[in-house]
Design a protein around this nucleic acid. Structure first.
Lengths: 167, 167
DNA sequence: AGAACAGGTCAACATGGCTGTCCCGACCGC
DNA sequence: GCGGTCGGGACAGCCATGTTGACCTGTTCT
């Protein structure tokens, strides 16, 4: 791939948008776009002494109040221990509270406290600013394409969970 | 109203695609899409005992053979020390080689060895598979929108560096 | 009653960021 | 040609966040 004289792989009928340059462009934009979006909240997080891992938990709890630890674990795709640390810190700081489920008392239903909700909202505002600016500069038509490609990157089974977030 | 204190979001005329649900959808798809794409290479990386940090360096060196350490640093947006560790390991393993610049002999020009290029190509293949499947399922029209939104997330000055990768 | 399950916890470890400090050799402007 | 700046490297140490495996408690289900 580095040398222009290398034997060309000969992909005859592949459409232009599937050639290597287009794939590389997608990989790079995804990397830089994701980086810049996540950086948008670092300052707000640092002011509270929290990290990105805390934000991810806050975000999904805000999104699905009352979800169980298992559900959160499935969304984040990390281990119980990693999540445990984060959740302990968030509850100690009074940002998250957990109550036993009434249907199944083994479960802990997670929700944000008022303070947690306020923090999540403030952080979301930073994300909103950046992403809505991007939506606007790209135009409404582009947004659908943006979603469609990203949905294609998510395996079908997980796609259901993601879609269910917008309950 | 003399006191405009509470910054109530109240965005009356904002188009549908800029409302909170659409922003949340974008945030979530970006998170899950990015996660799944990067996971595509973890197996190949683990087989070589390398991590994602190594891959990012390999990737950009493959993309711009002969780039300097400073340029790579600017792309990755990490510290000299963090990159130093990665680069040392990659050169020790014979995947990357560095030569002094001829215009400025302080510089180290980075390039992949044959072995490094082979590894990068193999890892890229995994990315290509996932992303081209997503491109295909979304359709050619969607890809342009995908790029446009992501470009909007990248600050203007950095956008130039990113675009220059496809030299 | 006993198995399976939700959740928590401990110890130990890996990765990949970070800071601050210091150093060398090369380049450039006066 | 000398002093300042620059490209790059290296030290020590810290922190956040991920991992594993083992084990415990209480609850639910059969």
């Amino acid at each position: 791939m580095a040398v222009p004289t290398a034997p060309e792989p000969f992909r005859p009928a592949s459409p232009l948008f599937l050639r290597e340059p287009e794939i590389r462009k997608g990989v790079e934009l995804l990397y830089f776009g994701y980086s810049h979006l996540t950086r948008a909240i670092d300052e707000g997080l640092a002011a509270k002494g929290l990290g990105r891992a805390h934000h991810r938990a806050l975000y999904f709890i805000a999104r699905q109040p009352g979800l169980t630890v298992s559900q959160l674990l499935a969304l984040l795709a990390i281990t119980k221990q990693s999540l445990g640390r984060v959740l302990t810190e968030l509850t100690e700081r009074g940002l998250v509270e957990m109550r036993p489920g009434d249907r199944d008392r083994r479960q802990r239903l997670l929700r944000l406290t008022a303070e947690g909700a306020a923090l999540e909202a403030a952080l979301f505002e930073a994300l909103r600013e950046r992403l809505s600016a991007a939506y606007q500069s790209a135009g409404q038509g582009a947004v659908g394409g943006f979603w469609a490609v990203l949905e294609g990157l998510v395996p079908a089974d997980e796609r259901a969970k993601v879609a269910a977030l917008g309950r």
